[in-house]
Amino acid sequence: MSTWDSDTHPPHPAMGAGAWLRVVGRGLPLAVLVFGCLAVLLLVRLIERPLYGARRPVTPYITQFVCRSAFVLLGMGYRVEGEVMSGPGAVVANHSSWLDIFALNARKRIYFVSKAEVAKWPGIGWLARATGTVFIQRDRRTASAQVAVFQDRLALGHKLLFFPEGTSTDGQRVLPFKPTLFAAFFAPGLRETLSIQPVSVVYRGPTGADARFYGWWGDMDFGPHLLSTLAARRQGSVTVTYHAPVRVADFGDRKALASTLESRVREGLIRSLQP
């Protein structure tokens, strides 16, 4: 659940017969897609793991296929701007919704970095583990071990994705990036070689709907939000903008790095939201 909140939530229309038909018409194929491909991924992983270990040469393509297809089934527009960074590195993005997982995986093979609690969430935790999410403890005593995990995964060519806001919002703003997250990037062996690509994820609600329609924050429950998304008569769109990567070695400290990345992501959001 998001720790950010506002005074109001976007209104959602009552669920009539037509809305429930749209829920079934979109939700059933989406469930078949996600859980069917998850079964395929787990079977492939039985072969992939002993042969390649943490280096996943096949299964990320299954994840990409699912995420791209999800927007087709939802009837939701999906657009990409900018060039995806080549080579290993980290990615940071603003966080608005559970839909971010689909939006960011659809174009780029990435591995999310998430708080350890997510691994225990029913359903979502299982999906996260299956797709190679890196779980971290918010404890300084484990900082050196986490840096070692980051180094190992980056050495395999993985792109690790972080949400530096630490929570999700209504999609109309970018919260301050938490500089603590970036301390690991300044560790010897990472600072000299690591590049980070800032990414802006921007949602536009369905025509006539609240601009915050796809945002998921505060005490909003996942189930009702999913239902309202599936039930929309007309869907909106999401634009994912990849900005130029920055080199960690070009910054003196984590605060300067966090501030620059935050500014790039915010500028991309503001620019995309302009009429």
Results as ranks from 00 to 15, higher is better:
S2M: 09
S2L: 13
S2F: 11
P10Y: 01
P10M: 03
H12Y: 15
A17P: 07
A17E: 09
G18Y: 00
A19K: 08
R22C: 00
R26K: 12
L30V: 06
A39I: 13
V44S: 05
R45L: 05
I47Q: 04
Y52R: 09
A54T: 03
T63A: 14
Q64A: 09
A70F: 08
F71Y: 10
E81N: 13
E81R: 15
V84E: 14
S86K: 15
V92Q: 08
A93N: 09
N94G: 07
H95R: 15
S96T: 10
S97R: 09
W98F: 08
D100L: 01
D100E: 09
A103M: 04
L104M: 08
Y111C: 06
Y111S: 12
S114Y: 10
E117W: 07
V118E: 13
V118K: 09
K120P: 00
W121H: 04
I124R: 02
L127I: 15
R129L: 00
A130H: 00
V134N: 12
I136R: 13
I136Y: 14
Q137E: 14
D139V: 14
R141Q: 12
S144W: 11
A145Y: 06
A148M: 05
Q151S: 13
D152E: 15
A155H: 02
L156W: 01
H158Q: 09
L161W: 10
T167E: 02
A184W: 14
P188E: 09
P198R: 04
V202W: 01
V202M: 07
R204Y: 01
T207Q: 13
G215M: 02
M220V: 03
D221T: 15
F222C: 12
G223M: 11
G223A: 15
H225F: 08
S237M: 07
T239M: 06
T241R: 11
R247Q: 14
V248A: 13
A249K: 07
F251N: 11
G252Q: 03
A256H: 12
A258D: 04
S259Q: 05
T260N: 00
L261K: 03
R264V: 09
L273V: 02
L273R: 11
Q274P: 10
